[in-house]
């Protein structure tokens, strides 16, 4: 039983990393949002499994939040934003899929090396979880760095947040308050960035953040 429990938790956490990789090479916004929804669903599965094996019913709330908000509400809302902005046909110039994927692999390796060493005397399950969560966080950051479109940066940021939740639920005894606050902070960040998008759009007629650079003022 113990082996199976571990394997399934590992499967979900690994799945999250895999979906993160999938997000890296999406160059269409709709496709990116779909993958992000998938990311949230895998997260919900993982958190749900953690709730079951830890016997911690409050984690089911986190599962629900992940499923409802991140899996459904946010992707739908972003879909509508993209439609209203009329940028659904835009194709992003990603740094180069090959390079990005290689960098992603390097990041996963790095987080494994660091985390497995740092947490040498921690619980086996938590160890793997934390290592994979750090990979998800780093991949989210990588996505934010390589993308130019503001919408895909929002998505990158939220996948990063998913990684944090994975880490938080992987460790036993994390109070619910923290998770809810993390979830809400993401929601608020999403709202703020959404409003920002409209502002950028109204002002500069594009959501390409390069447009902002021209308005930076004196570059002494």
């Amino acid at each position: 039983m113990d082996g199976l429990v571990f394997d399934i938790a590992h499967l979900f956490a690994g799945g999250l990393v895999l979906v993160s990789f999938m997000m890296l090479y999406q160059d269409r916004l709709y496709a990116l949002l779909n993958i992000f929804a998938l990311h949230a669903i895998v997260l919900a599965l993982s958190v749900g499994w953690q709730a079951y094996i830890q016997g911690a019913p409050h984690l089911y709330i986190t599962t629900a939040i992940a499923l409802l908000f991140k899996g459904i509400v946010i992707p739908v809302a972003l879909h509508r934003i993209i439609q209203r902005l009329g940028i659904h046909r835009e194709i992003e110039t990603v740094v180069g899929i090959g390079m990005t994927m290689l960098a992603g692999i390097g990041l996963v390796a790095l987080s494994m090396v660091v985390m497995l060493r740092v947490t040498a005397d921690a619980d086996r399950l938590a160890r793997e979880d934390v290592a994979l969560a750090l990979s998800v966080v780093l991949l989210g950051l990588l996505m934010m760095v390589t993308r130019r479109n503001a919408v895909s940066q929002v998505v990158g940021f939220m996948s990063l947040e998913n990684g944090l939740i994975l880490a938080a639920t992987g460790a036993k005894g994390m109070p619910l308050v923290v998770e809810i606050s993390v979830a809400f902070s993401v929601l608020i960040a999403f709202i703020v960035i959404g409003i920002f998008l409209f502002r950028i759009r109204e002002r500069f007629d594009t959501v390409d953040i390069h447009a902002l650079d021209r308005f930076q003022g004196d570059r002494g």
């Binding site: 780093l138 934010m144 953040i209 390069h210 902002l212 004196d218």
Partner: peptide, 16 residues
């Protein structure tokens, strides 16, 4: 006086 993306990149590289 860097751009947002460059700041993100700096943070990312520092973290790495």
């Amino acid at each position: 006086f860097l751009t947002i993306r460059r700041y993100l990149r700096l943070v990312f590289l520092a973290l790495i």
